[in-house]
Write a protein that binds this DNA or RNA. Sequence first.
DNA 1: AACCTCTACGTTTTT
DNA 2: CGTAGAGGTT
Length: 781
Amino acid sequence: MENFLQELNKSQQDAVLYNEGPSLVIAGAGSGKTRVLTYKIATLLESGYAPYNILALTFTNKAAREMKERIAGLVGLPLASRLWMGTFHSVFSRILRANADRIGFTSDFTIYDSSDSRSLIKSIVKDKGLDDKLYKPSSVQAIISNAKNALITPAAYLLNKELMESDMYSKRPLIQEIYQTYWNRCLRAGAMDFDDLLLYTNILFRDHADVLERYRSIFRFVLVDEYQDTNFAQHLIVRQLAREHGRICVVGDDAQSIYSFRGANISNILNLKDEYPGCRTFKLEQNYRSTRNIVSAANSLIEKNKEQIRKNVYSENAEGSKIEVLNAYSDYEEGYFVANRILEMHSSDGYVFNDFAILYRTNAQSRIFEEALRKRSIPYRIYGGLSFYQRKEIKDVISYFRLAVNPHDEEALKRIINYPARGIGDTTLGKIIECGVKHDVSLWQVIVSPLEYALPVNSGTLGKLQKFRELIEDFIEENRSLDAMEIAEIIIRRSGIFKEIFSDRSVENISRQENIQELMNGIQEYCSNRREEGNEHISLVDFLAEISLATDQDTEEDGTSDKVTMMTVHASKGLEFKNVFVVGLEEDLFPSSLSKSSESEIEEERRLLYVAITRAEENCVLSYAATRYRNGQPTAMPPSRFLKDIDPCYLKLPSALSSGNKIPGLDREPHFGKYTSHASIYRNKTTGSRSSFPMWDAEMSASTSSLKKVSSLVSSSTESEERTLTSIGNISVNARIRHDRFGEGTVVEISGEGDNCKVGVEFDQVGKKQLLLKFAKFTVI
DNA sequence: AACCTCTACGTTTTT
DNA sequence: CGTAGAGGTT
């Protein structure tokens, strides 16, 4: 134990060693927060706590996994793996499964992801004959989610004057009714959404004193990471578990609170001392991650916020270089600048690609950087966007899994009742739903007893439904005895998915096959991991429970590959990189146009930038573009106000336009001129003439607009029924082309017409390929 | 029921 | 610009 302590500074030691009462650790960015938590848990274990007496809550699976690994390194895996450690959602879903009967569920309940719940809301709005423009499923979903986070049930909603009046004002008086129906249908389907996991935990603890008592005595010590991101429901769960005995340690940084949009409330951490009498506060202020310059720059930014706990984050590392500010004419040029800068630093400063991250405000920005990096052959990986589990073919397979575990699962059933096609169309499904609603039973119950519920369908349809029922019952039966892997294989074969997807090798099916293969590998891996931990029987339920709370952030990356990381700033929290590019620093993007209505929203955006900058260890680059494609339109973008919040003495401003310490564009309005000249660049490209910017010529020759030109010529040639198969559009046999993936090659044949038009190309590197003109991305050279 | 075309729509962040 | 969803067509 002594040697642990030597690796900690004084304030870290104090925080680790004080375990007699409640404590709050305010941990500045890069101050070794995770280290304190892991050592604290190790200390608790040494001082006699059993691992299962310790509850440690995090916000991401990744954070939980990393911490578990580090603790395993200190005390060994057997001990570490028996800690109650995980995200709020995963830990409490476990507890809910164990006590499901107390709250009207079974332990096999399904977890709806946000698209499941949106789809259910949509279906309810439709059933009630409401206008889905007014009752937009996503807005209704947000309202319901907020209510749940505030622990307001449908019944409580009805009694809540404020909410009901607000719905009246927005001309949507029936929201409560939708909420009530949503609630009932989830209950009937045996399903919980993300918010329910926290809400029902609160209900469980509130209504069942014996259960609460039991968990209070099990969790003799409670630790919570990232407390600034807790919402009311989470805060209350923690309070119920820990306030009485007061053995709690909460870690967080108010300066890094960036999730208020989903109900996180900074006052949970700011007011903690009032809730836990005798609470001691420890501040970790030394930053070990970043250079002095980066820390100072970040400090000068966050100082502009009014709401915060004052602290003095400092670094004793090298001074480091200044934060570089890049200004580009356009979003494309921004991508080009960043890609270039990465290559420069890669070749001259000895960095590997893993040392770089590009952080942006919105996922939509990733596209341009992908393109720019791909052109320069810089390897990259993207986090976020649509996750693996959101892909259609994966959701389909998972839906079968879900039904095998819980056939009442409405969303899963709707998804695959006619996939693969078995003649049960929308009309029949509509009748089943109507029938279920009428008798207040699940869709599955209607299918099992169609006569009892007087389902109005003909005998042919009835037969099809019974065949479907037998299929699912077969899965349910097999699932009782088989392992996750075995049942998964059976389901994929007997459901007809295998036949559907693996029968041919068409372009789009190949990627589906790969995805399903990847899913199977995932199950296999999950099973072997669980076996290592000493479980013999690994059921499908367990696997589903795991993946319904997994995000693509959690998919294992092979640490061997050397790639630039791209992700949103939100996703980067808790990570660090040697070199960080924060891009798109423009008004209405960062800060987002949707977060400008109040000062507190602006402050949150400022914290977001603070988080982004403090990810950097050695170099940080901030970039912005004067024009950017927004909704298909090139739009003038003023630089972000945050650029002038950072003390310019920590910045290296763009040389070309830097006059003194001014940020180009901040104090004047030159963009209109630049913007128009840019619009003309775009025009020039489509008409084929050359722009006057050399860099554009070099970089944009393989642009999407020239691709468009090819395909538009192709379709015009089909219109005139032209069948010259030696040339089509501006492609002809013997033409040289460049393909994004396959490199350069020579066209050897042209066949088909219209959308089926194919070109055979002999590539220099990879041999002959048939390219479907409709899809292939290449340019004639 | 599958396929296609057209239009409308939206762009915040995530367990 | 890109997609998703509706609507129409085979």
